[in-house]
Computed example of a mutant assay.
Amino acid sequence: MERVAKLSTEKAVVIFTTSTCPMCHTVESLFSDLGAAPAVHELDKDPRGRDMERELARRLGRSPPVPAVFIAGKLVGSTDRVMSLHLAGKLVPMLRAAGAIWL
């Protein structure tokens, strides 16, 4: 879907969420704590959210597809992938390379 592709590149970090998803909040907090200031799109509040949700589920190969994290326009994955990258010390370098953080 073109909308997902367009929105996923609007900032260095983009997160697709739903307003009631606790793991979405956790991932948002992680990026904010790292200083990344992500663009957050709550699918349940977007009139085209259902279509975007289906596209993200197709890309991720799972449902529900949130949170879906994009860094530098590339799909990184969901909570488990983001946390794995962070624990392995790979998330911060990705954010630096994308221009999301400078420290």
Rank of each mutant, 00 (worst) to 15 (best):
V76K: 08
L75W: 05
A57E: 15
H86I: 04
A97Y: 06
G77Y: 01
D80P: 02
V13Q: 07
G89A: 06
A36I: 11
S32T: 15
C24A: 14
F31T: 01
V82Q: 07
G77V: 02
E53F: 13
T79H: 14
G89N: 03
S19D: 07
C21S: 15
S84L: 10
T20R: 11
R59Y: 07
P93E: 08
R81K: 14
A5K: 15
S29I: 10
L60R: 15
E53Y: 10
S63Y: 13
V27F: 02
G89V: 02
D80Y: 01
I15E: 03
L60S: 12
S32L: 14
P93V: 08
I15N: 04
V13N: 10
P65Q: 05
R62C: 09
A36K: 10
G89I: 05
L103D: 15
E28W: 00
T18A: 08
S84T: 14
A88E: 13
E2W: 05
V69F: 06
E42L: 13
R96M: 13
R81M: 13
R58G: 11
L56C: 09
M23Y: 15
I101F: 01
P67T: 12
D33M: 14
V69D: 03
V14H: 04
L43D: 01
G73N: 12
K6T: 14
L34T: 10
L7N: 03
R54P: 00
H41A: 03
I15H: 00
A72H: 13
D46N: 11
A12N: 12
A98E: 03
P47L: 07
M83Y: 15
R62P: 03
D80H: 11
P67G: 10
P22H: 09
R81V: 15
V4E: 03
V27L: 02
L34P: 09
T18C: 02
I15F: 04
A37K: 13
M52Y: 01
E55C: 00
S32G: 13
P38G: 06
V27Q: 01
G89H: 03
F31N: 02
V14W: 08
V14Q: 07
P67M: 11
S19Q: 05
K11F: 01
A97C: 07
T9D: 02
L56H: 06
L34K: 09
V66G: 03
E53L: 06
F70K: 05
S8G: 00
K74T: 13
A98T: 02
S84K: 14
E28P: 00
P47M: 02
V69P: 05
M52V: 02
L103G: 14
V13H: 09
M52R: 04
D33Q: 14
G89T: 03
A57Y: 05
A97G: 12
A5I: 11
L95D: 03
T9A: 14
R59K: 13
V82L: 08
M83H: 11
K45C: 03
R96Y: 04
P22I: 11
E42P: 02
S84Y: 02
L91K: 04
K11W: 04
L95I: 04
P22A: 10
T20K: 10
A88Q: 12
R54A: 14
S63N: 12
